[in-house]
Amino acid sequence: MLLRRMLIMLGVVALVVLALAAYKGFAIYQQVQQFSAPQPAISVAATTASEQPWQSRLPAIGTLKAFQGVDLTVEVGGIVRELLFQSGERVVKGQALLQMDDQVERANLATAEAALGLASVEFERGRSLVSRSNISKSEFDRLSAERQQASASVAQVQAQLAKKRILAPFSGSIGIRQVEVGDYLSPGTNIATLQDLAKLHVDFFLPEQAVPKLALGERVRLSVAAYPDEVFEGEIAAINPKVETTTRNVQVRATLDNPDGRLLPGMFANLEVLLPGAATQVVVPETAITYTLYGNSVYVITEKRDADGQPEMGTPGQPQLMVERRFVETGERRDGRVVILDGLQAGERVVTAGQLKLDNGAHVAIAADPADASAPAGAGQ
């Protein structure tokens, strides 16, 4: 009886073990089938590398400066008697801007002119007398020197008087005045700034390697933060004949018209020097490039082929596509595009979105629209 029960228990245990073994074997079989099954195609966005005319440009940053610009100051001290301009108005060359008190100088001028008149009369009298030998030649020379000295004194006082009246050295827009009537001005006091805004300079620096590419008259395009959607054009007017020893950069100055006066001196400018000639280059979107420390690469889309070199067909009857990771040499980047100097030919298709999911030889399918690529891939670009 006891032996029978033991045999039954052993049979039940054997059945349970066999059932568990069968279940585990079936699970392992399913996993093997899953891994051996072909992986689904990875959806990516793609474009074709194309040859396009590409004009080389030298990017730089610069600062706008007035074609002519000065801070008006006084050369001699005195009290302001009249202010003859309004802040922000446009003035013309030679226009009076400020008059200082000049009563002392005018009195000195009258004295000097009187002395000059007397010296001139004595000189004329002496000239008639010396011709008749009534005075010595040395006495006549003394009278001539006195007349010249009196004339110089008049010119000196006239120059001092002129310094009491400030005139515009050139036409332009005058800034906010810094003085008022009645102020005492010491020499060097700032009155206002005067800027000629009809034309502007933009000064910028380029590395010394760019010197052979630079020439007077080359076009420059620039933009400023105040007008982000507008592009202003000028041309190179001067190249500094010396390279800065601290930065190894050369200073360049371009000139541009400013007829509306919208650009102001001191503005920060992003600019590009347009180099002559436009060579044909292989160009792809910048999103197609994977940048790494050990080199830049692209994923080139090719047809998968069998051992006989024939394209393998997919389920819809189209050739299966795969990607090949290829390292390339990149050149200039501009407006979301990049030049490929080596490693890629025109007409080859490259992946522009979805690279994070790819590896060399991965099976891919080209999405009808870049938006069809997965969100994580797009977020990683």
Rank of each mutant, 00 (worst) to 15 (best):
S136D: 15
A368Y: 08
S133Q: 15
V339N: 10
E244D: 15
G261F: 01
I366N: 08
V283W: 11
V104F: 12
R127F: 06
G11V: 09
E113H: 06
Q148P: 02
V12G: 00
V44S: 01
P212W: 10
G175T: 05
L274G: 02
A210S: 15
I135S: 10
Q86W: 06
Q148I: 04
E113W: 07
G117M: 13
V202E: 00
P169A: 09
T247S: 15
A288H: 04
N134L: 14
I61S: 12
G331W: 05
L109M: 12
L194S: 01
M1N: 11
E233R: 11
A152Q: 07
Y29V: 05
T48Y: 05
S120T: 13
K164V: 02
A373E: 08
T189H: 06
T330W: 04
E124A: 13
G277S: 12
G234P: 01
L197G: 01
P285F: 03
N258Y: 05
A22P: 01
Q320D: 03
Q99W: 10
P59E: 11
Q86E: 09
Y299C: 01
V231S: 02
I135R: 09
M267N: 03
Y294H: 09
G117F: 12
L83T: 06
L214S: 11
G378Y: 13
L256T: 02
E113C: 03
T189I: 05
